[in-house]
Amino acid sequence: MSVWDDVVGQEHVIDTLRAAVAEPRSMTHAWLFTGPPGSGRSNAARAFAAALQCENPDERGCGRCQACTTTLAGTHADVTVVATEQVTIKIDEVRDLIGRAVRKPSTGRWQVIVVEDADRMLERTTNVLLKSIEEPPPQTVWLLCAPSSQDVLPTIRSRCRGVVLRVPPVESVAALLVSRDGAEPEVALEAARAAQSHIGLARRLARDAGARERRDEVLKIPAEVASVGEAVIAAGRLVEVAQAEARSATEERDAEEKGALLRALGAEAGETLPPRLRSQVTELEKDQKRRATRYQRDVLDRAMLDLLSLYRDVLVTQLGAEVELVNTAHGATVRMLAGRSTSVRTIEQMNAISTARERLGTNVSPLLATEAMLVELCP
Rank of each mutant, 00 (worst) to 15 (best):
D6R: 10
D6G: 09
H12I: 04
D15S: 13
T16H: 14
L17W: 07
R18H: 09
A19G: 07
V21T: 08
P24G: 01
S26Y: 12
M27R: 15
A30G: 12
W31A: 01
F33S: 01
T34H: 07
G35H: 05
P37N: 01
P37D: 02
G38H: 00
S39V: 01
S42A: 15
R46F: 01
A50V: 01
A51Y: 03
L52K: 03
C54Y: 04
E59M: 12
G61L: 03
C62H: 03
G63L: 09
R64W: 09
T71A: 07
L72S: 04
L72Y: 10
A73L: 04
A73Y: 03
A73Q: 09
A73P: 05
A77W: 04
V79Y: 08
A83E: 15
T84F: 06
E85V: 06
Q86Y: 04
Q86S: 13
K90C: 02
K90N: 09
E93T: 15
V94D: 06
G99I: 05
V102D: 08
S106R: 12
T107P: 01
V112Y: 00
I113G: 07
V114Q: 00
D117V: 00
R120P: 09
M121R: 00
E123D: 11
L130M: 08
K131A: 03
S132R: 06
P137L: 10
V141G: 05
L143F: 00
L143G: 00
S149H: 12
S149A: 14
D151G: 02
D151W: 00
V152D: 00
P154V: 02
S158M: 04
C160W: 03
C160D: 00
G162N: 08
L165R: 04
P168G: 02
P168R: 06
P169T: 07
R180A: 14
A188S: 06
A191K: 07
S197Q: 08
H198V: 05
R203E: 10
G210H: 10
D216F: 04
E217A: 15
V218N: 01
L219N: 05
L219Q: 06
R237Y: 02
V239M: 10
E240T: 06
A242P: 02
A244F: 07
E252S: 14
A255D: 12
L262S: 04
L262V: 05
R263C: 05
L265K: 05
G266P: 09
A267S: 13
A269I: 12
G270K: 09
E271Y: 04
R278C: 05
V281C: 08
L284C: 10
K289D: 14
K289R: 15
K289Q: 14
R291F: 10
R294N: 11
Y295D: 03
Q296P: 05
L305M: 12
D306S: 06
L307K: 02
L308Q: 12
S309I: 02
V314K: 07
L315P: 07
T317D: 12
Q318E: 13
L319K: 08
G320A: 10
L325H: 13
N327Y: 03
H330M: 09
M336V: 10
L337W: 02
V344R: 14
R345S: 11
E348L: 09
A356W: 10
R359D: 14
G361V: 01
G361K: 10
G361S: 10
N363M: 12
P366T: 02
